[in-house]
């Protein structure tokens, strides 16, 4: 698929603080990219650059082949800010229609969008009377206007109830399925792990990791954990024999590199009937995130 967002050598500072340094990043249509990093790592600055709300100090940045604030580009970009807010005095429909007109969308699509996000029955209600979850659904509604080619989401699911969250990811998958590039900043690691095609980790304004989950896992060389369940009170004995760690009286944990996994599993199964169960725990995104967020880890890594 074609490139939707391209950053080449992009830097941006706020006064003396270097928020982003020499960022190279290309995002293609249909890709769901999760942008991770501590607070202050540069995530929001990166999103604001791509949205054309701020300009880079150095480097080249193109969105859909043009400048991010280009009149032809903006209607194709959808944005859901963290803690999205609307005018309380307006009704749901009025607020949505305002955005449809601003984005030069088709006013006829309003009811279908509200139906899609479960707000069809609240169309005439004042925003002041909506619950927090309903307001966030309205935020979700406005990203469906037109056919966005790029969707920018800034910590979108913080504070969403589980049902709205499911709906949210369903809609994001749909948009990506239609060819839109999705860039989502998040702290909810377990949540984005299964719902992203690509992980980018920022630390102190640098990209320290960029790739698919399996690639990052392999590159980080974080050991895989194999948990062996054994009968009560045999764990000590087994831990000593297997050069493993005793978790409790009935569970022993082995760690090994990814390439040794099969061999170690063979060792375990060779123990025979004493093994009651085996869990293989690959490094989670949290492990990977912790690894790459360590100082001096991964900086300058080829992406």
């Amino acid at each position: 698929m074609s490139d939707v967002v391209t950053l080449a050598g992009v830097s941006r500072s706020y006064g003396d603080i270097l928020a982003l340094s020499d960022i190279d990043l290309t995002v293609s249509g249909g890709q769901r990219l999760a942008l991770l990093g501590h607070n202050g790592a540069g995530k929001t600055t990166l999103l604001k650059l791509v949205l054309g709300l701020i300009r880079p100090d150095r480097g080249r940045l193109t969105v859909l082949g043009g400048a991010p604030d280009d009149a032809g580009v903006r209607p194709q970009v959808a944005y859901l800010p963290e803690n999205v807010a609307f005018h309380k005095a307006l009704s749901v429909r009025e607020q949505l229609d305002f955005f449809i007109r601003l984005k030069k969308g088709n006013r006829g699509e309003g009811p279908a969008i509200l139906e899609r996000v479960g707000l069809a029955n609240a169309a005439r209600r004042r925003i002041a009377t909506l619950s927090k979850g309903m307001r966030q659904r309205l935020g979700l509604a406005q990203i469906l206007i037109g056919q966005p080619k790029l969707v920018i989401l800034d910590e979108p699911t913080s504070g969403l109830d589980p049902v709205s969250r499911e709906l949210f990811y369903e809609i994001i998958a749909e948009l990506a399925g239609n060819g839109a590039a999705i860039i989502q900043s998040s702290h909810a690691l377990t949540e984005v792990e299964a719902r992203s095609d690509r992980i980018v980790i920022l630390r102190e304004g640098h990209i320290v990791a960029d790739g698919r989950m399996a690639e990052l896992r392999a590159r980080s060389r974080i050991p895989i954990r194999i948990r062996v369940h054994v009968p009560q009170d045999t764990a000590d004995d087994l831990a000593a024999r297997m050069d493993a760690k005793r978790i409790n009286g009935a569970v022993v944990e082995l760690t090994c590199a990814a390439e040794d996994k099969v061999r170690r599993l063979a060792d375990v199964t060779a123990l025979g009937a004493v093994v009651e169960d085996i869990d293989v725990v690959p490094p989670s995104l949290e492990d990977i995130y912790r690894f790459y967020s360590r100082p001096d880890e991964g900086r300058g890594e080829p992406s």
């Binding site: 944005y79 609307f86 955005f99």
Partner: peptide
């Protein structure tokens, strides 16, 4: 109130 950033990303 946080109502402006969204408007500023629209084609206006």
């Amino acid at each position: 109130r946080g109502t402006l950033p969204l408007v500023m990303t629209c084609p206006v």
